[in-house]
Simulated assay, not measured.
Amino acid sequence: MAEPILEVRDLVKYYPLTQGIVFKRQVGAVKAVDGVSFGLEKGETLGVVGESGCGKSTLAKVLMNLERATAGEVRFKGEDITR
């Protein structure tokens, strides 16, 4: 079996919820993407569907390195692109 072109393992992206004006402290987090895993072989196509606000755009931004993942791993042609 060939190595996947794109491999995503346990991808997580949380946005912190803060409170305060001068001394901001984190009081929670918005879980935009939580535990997404998949692999794509050469010639395969993936469609991501879901309701508005479920994390589709955030997933795409993390895959394109426009947002940094909170946790997990994205490998493109075997190279870790999340770090």
Rank of each mutant, 00 (worst) to 15 (best):
V27Q: 01
D80A: 13
V48G: 12
A69K: 11
V33A: 02
Q26T: 15
Y14C: 01
L46F: 05
V49H: 01
G39P: 00
L66E: 03
L17D: 12
D34I: 04
E79N: 06
E51D: 15
E3S: 13
R25I: 10
G47N: 10
A32Y: 07
S52E: 10
K42F: 07
I5Y: 00
V12C: 06
A71Y: 04
G53M: 11
A71N: 10
G35R: 03
Y15C: 07
R68Q: 12
M1L: 10
P4W: 05
K31Y: 08
Y14H: 15
G72L: 10
G35F: 08
G20F: 11
E44R: 13
T70L: 09
G47D: 09
G55D: 08
V30D: 03
I81E: 06
V27F: 06
P4H: 12
A69M: 02
F76R: 01
E41M: 15
M1C: 05
R68G: 05
A29M: 11
V8W: 04
R83Q: 14
G53V: 06
K61N: 15
C54W: 09
V36Y: 02
G20C: 11
F38W: 04
V74D: 04
G35T: 08
T58C: 10
V49C: 07
S57L: 11
K31P: 02
N65A: 13
V36E: 02
A2R: 08
L40R: 08
K31C: 02
K61P: 00
R25V: 11
D80H: 04
I81M: 10
M1G: 11
E51W: 07
E41F: 11
E3V: 11
V8P: 00
T18H: 03
R9S: 06
E67Y: 14
G39N: 07
E67D: 11
K61A: 14
V74L: 03
F76Y: 15
K13M: 04
V33W: 00
T58P: 12
V12R: 15
S37F: 06
K56R: 01
I81A: 09
V36G: 01
D80E: 13
A2P: 15
C54R: 01
V33D: 05
V8Q: 08
Q26F: 06
K61V: 02
E73C: 14
L6S: 01
E7D: 09
M64E: 12
P16G: 12
K56W: 04
G55C: 04
E7C: 01
R83K: 15
L46V: 04
L6F: 00
D80S: 14
F23K: 08
Y14T: 01
A2S: 15
V12N: 03
V33L: 02
R68N: 06
T18M: 10
R9C: 00
K13P: 10
T82P: 06
E41L: 14
L63P: 13
T45V: 15
